[in-house]
Amino acid sequence: MAGYIVLGIGFGILLNKAGYGIGWAFAMSALIYAGSMQYVGIGLLSGGASVITTIITTFMVNARHLFYSISMIDKYKDSGKYKPYLIFALTDETYSLLCEDDDVPRESINRYRFFVSLFDQCYWVAGSVIGSLLGSVIHFSTAGIEFSMTALFIASFTEQWLASGDHKPAVIGLVSTVLCLVIFGTEKFLIPSMLLITLLLTVIRKKEDREG
């Protein structure tokens, strides 16, 4: 959870440097609440992107949330009044925390999930606001701080690699994306990559079904 304060601070600083102050940091973290997308969103805002580009980019960067939600359908089935917020607040961090909640007593599981989700967002919003304030008082160069987003994904990749016995999805993701980057270039490779990844994952599933 402390990770959210650090990442939030990085986001707040970058957003401030792009010319959007504390109100923007608060609004984005409260309403969008998707770490990596907000980093990407700074580029969209300062580059004057169109609404369509923004929607497509958000869809691509956040498409994994479809799958987080799919894997939570069963878990959240009986969460009652907490359900809308649990779904809204299902970020990478919260997802990974709630994947490992088997030792929480069943009778308080919904409250537990709600408060994990809520505290995660509080940390994230607080971090963003602190970062925004820091960004307006520090004047030394923060060049390179954007690597915090890259580091976030490399750390998640490493963690999933270590935790998973099946490395095929990770390898497929890596190879497909590099291939599409080489073929389609830096502007247009995201959509072909997603399609190729989905296709290859579908193919290996069919194959494993036959073998298994």
């Binding site: 960067v61 799919i70 894997s71 890259t150 998640s156 999933q160 095929k168 993701g173």
Partner: peptide, 26 residues
């Protein structure tokens, strides 16, 4: 949930994280 969709739910996050690493380094 259709089986195919739960399968994607299990394997896609790993592949998409790999995609995002490449995206950041593009």
């Amino acid at each position: 949930t259709p089986k195919y969709v739960s399968y994607l739910g299990k394997v896609l996050p790993q592949a998409i994280i790999a995609l995002l690493v490449v995206y950041c380094l593009r």
